[in-house]
Simulated assay, not measured.
Amino acid sequence: MESYIPRTIETQLYESLTGPIRKVNILYGPRQVGKTSLSDKILHQLGTDKILRLNADAAPDSAVFSSRDPAQLRLMIGNNEFLFIDEAQRIPDIGINLKILHDQFPKLRILVTGSSSLDLANKVLEPLTGRTRTWWLYPMSAQELSSAFGTLNYHQRLEEWLLFGTYPEVVKTPGREDKISYLTELTNSYLFKDILELANIRNSNVLRNLLKMLSLQVGGEVSFNELGRKLGVSTLTIQRYIDLLEKSFVLKVVGGFSRNLRKEITKSQKIYFLDLGIRNALIDRFNPLSLRDDIGALWENFLFIERMKLLRNNQLRGNHYFWRLHTGAELDMVEQTENRISGFEFKFRSKKAKAPESWVKAYPEASFELINTENYLPFVLEPPKK
């Protein structure tokens, strides 16, 4: 694991797998994000060879683990103390079988991964009620990359993160063309193969065109009705596809913040991509920032997702929204944690911004901050205080 970059959730996931409270640990995340590498690192730290590793793509393994037969499961488990199942959503009836394993093998510790929260969650949610601990692994975070390379190096490579994203393989790949080739292949194989197969979608052109349209609307409010009209499908179809893309870790759907003031917009949504490299690959735009007209959208997407990853990776509770009034006053992000509300405006170059008067009047207890390229590092590196 010479090129392995430590992940923020690593220690906490290890402690959950080995601690006194026994749970089925489920690690969600998109393909190629590093779930298997993280799991291998943790399993290696266990210091035992009593580990059963299974790949759900292997037919014999899948057949036994979909059997619901305790005797067959016992034969496979043997005297192993740990069980690791990769891409568990591919095993039929995985939830029932994990319940059997958890309940009938009291010393067995279980770690499973899944690249679709839609598919795997549907299979394990009810059978494993109260028996799971859920973890999320995203493309490399600012906190992880800064720890690995140093804060100065991270900042110097900001344009790289905005253009090519932070999938582990992209980070490790030095050449521009090699990065583009990898992202193009990942987009074609993961987005337009796995997701189509997962949801049994026959019309791939609609999904492809929807993603391209959403790529061009990053940071703007999205109308599902309008998307449906342009693509010639129903609003319900658009909602289904976007829900699928969010649960497959491609998109993040963000709603409007409101405390029921009449002028606040709450029914619209904004769409962000979990990785900007995927977004740029969809529209085949990797030209330098100096030649782009979408820097504002890239910057907003980058900051919004990095802040979300920062809270999630550090196991902090918080919700993120945008805020806008019908009169036009707006904020790019509202962060609501247990004890504070914070408003943020994102500007790539601007050094000055004032909180909208309507925001200050409606939420006098809330803070406001402009985030630009000169002060963004604490925003993406330092978790908010509890």
Rank of each mutant, 00 (worst) to 15 (best):
S215P: 05
S215M: 06
L216P: 04
L216I: 07
Q217F: 04
Q217K: 10
Q217R: 13
V218T: 06
V218K: 00
G219H: 03
V222Y: 04
S223D: 05
S223W: 05
F224H: 10
N225L: 12
E226H: 09
L227T: 06
G228D: 01
R229S: 13
K230R: 12
L231G: 01
L231A: 04
G232N: 04
G232P: 07
V233E: 03
V233W: 03
V233M: 02
T235S: 14
T235P: 07
L236F: 05
T237K: 04
I238Q: 02
Q239K: 15
Y241T: 09
D243R: 15
D243G: 15
D243V: 13
L244V: 13
L244F: 11
L244P: 06
L245C: 08
L245P: 03
K247P: 08
S248C: 15
S248A: 15
S248N: 13
F249C: 00
F249Q: 00
F249N: 01
V250Y: 01
L251T: 04
L251M: 04
V253K: 09
V253W: 09
V254L: 00
V254C: 03
G255D: 08
G256N: 08
G256Q: 08
G256E: 03
G256F: 01
F257E: 05
F257K: 07
R259T: 07
N260K: 14
L261D: 13
L261C: 11
L261A: 14
R262T: 12
R262N: 14
K263R: 13
K263G: 15
E264H: 10
E264K: 08
I265P: 00
I265L: 03
K267E: 09
S268I: 09
S268T: 15
S268D: 13
Q269W: 05
